[in-house]
């Protein structure tokens, strides 16, 4: 149970974090005339922040206690002949 509530908290925290880094005003910090490896700073920022969110999400879900695969959906309806 504790593990579940932890997961819930972390997912929501990640959601809020994503909402923050992908919005004004944090994005405006990178909306500048600068380049990194020849790529505009804003592009670099947006895509790497995005990738970071995905990595964190992946790290998060792999720690979820394995949900029992729901048999009922298929069990309700037998396979067609």
């Amino acid at each position: 149970m504790t593990k579940w509530s932890h997961f819930r908290e972390r997912a929501i925290a990640l959601f809020i974090l994503g909402g923050l880094v992908m919005n004004f005003p944090i994005m405006s910090l990178f909306s500048v005339d600068g380049f990194l490896f020849g790529i505009p700073a804003l592009y670099i920022y947006v895509f790497s922040a995005w990738l970071l969110l995905i990595v964190l999400a992946a790290a998060l879900v792999t720690r979820v206690p394995r949900h029992t695969v729901d048999r009922s959906r298929t069990a309700d309806i037998e396979p067609r002949p």
């Binding site: 909306s31 005339d33 380049f35 790529i39």
Partner: peptide, 22 residues
Amino acid sequence: GFGDLFTRAAEYPDLARLFTLG
């Protein structure tokens, strides 16, 4: 590559505008 493409685009003022928000 990316660097070359963006560097060239930066030379056009019209395109450099697209590198920012606002």
